[in-house]
Amino acid sequence: MRNENEQEKLTPEDFERVTIDAHHSERIEKPSLSFWQDAWLGLRKNKAAIVSMIILLVVIIMALIGPHLNGHAGDAQNLRHANLPPKIPGIEATGFFDGDGKLAGKTVNLYEMKKVDEYYWFGTDGLGRDLFTRLWEGTRVSLFIAFVAAAIDMVIGVAYGGISGYFGGRTDDIMQRVVEILIGIPTLIVVILMIMIMDPGITAIIVAITITGWIGMSRIVRAQTLKYKSQEFVLASRTLGAKDGKIITKHLLPNMLGIIIINTMFTIPNAIFFEAFLSFIGIGLQPPAASLGTLINDGYKVMENQPYVLLFPAIVISVLMIAFNLIGDGLRDALDPKMKD
């Protein structure tokens, strides 16, 4: 039964038996990764998210140190220096940011006209305040509001959703009836009503944003809790005598961490938007306080003649929103197990 194929001659050594431990091919090739390492590996591949993180870092740093960079105080009014266009040393020679502005329909260098020697990088407003300093002060306030609001949303949402889902039964029933009513109320209405009855300010905005903001998070956390608590590994842990506290901290929270982070990443830009929105329609922060919303509102009023007043805060808020959304997208792709193969 040997074949009739033409067979080349091979050396007898070729046919020596070799013994292979087949089990070596079963060893796990990849090193085991922690949650954060895995997330980072996924995120690192997403160029848009990485660029966004760098930009976000720069904006945060500028929000912290920016107001101190050029020696002008944000609240220092100098009417002689009012309505100056941007002038940046070094770049002025190129024809951009050289202090030229429109006056009565003609383009003139307002710095020369008003005999101003100082540089206002992003120009000044109608009261002669330095817009560069005010921009970063405003960014700081907007970011502060957004981070605090997102953190409060997260804490309340996780606690409410977790308790409702974990304890179930009557507790869950009552808590969910409350949510069902609350979710029907449009966010916008609640935010505006809340802000109207409080003294305008940062606290009022944060309270207004968070008063219904946590509901989304609580629903997600409740659904996840329900999903995981009925799974075998939780049952196994319970059989071995684990207490509720241990099951929640060791088994449930680590599994939900990804989705909680993703959701928080999307509440931050939402909070930035609502702050700016409220300030823009005039019921948010009140002058002289600056936030991105009030700066855009100020800029909008003088858009016709001094467009630069609107331009810079508009750019910063757009960049911030884009960056947070892209990081959120990147994190979702990296952390969401549904997206993994």
Binding site: R2, Q7, V18
Partner: peptide, 29 residues
């Protein structure tokens, strides 16, 4: 497994008109 299995892909060896197998075990040596 034999030494040659690690080095070269086995060609098809004919077992019958309808039956072929790619293993060095069917080589005449």
């Amino acid at each position: 497994a034999m030494k040659i299995d690690m080095e070269r892909q086995p060609p098809f060896f004919k077992v019958s008109d309808t039956h072929y197998a790619a293993t060095w075990l069917l080589h005449s040596q």
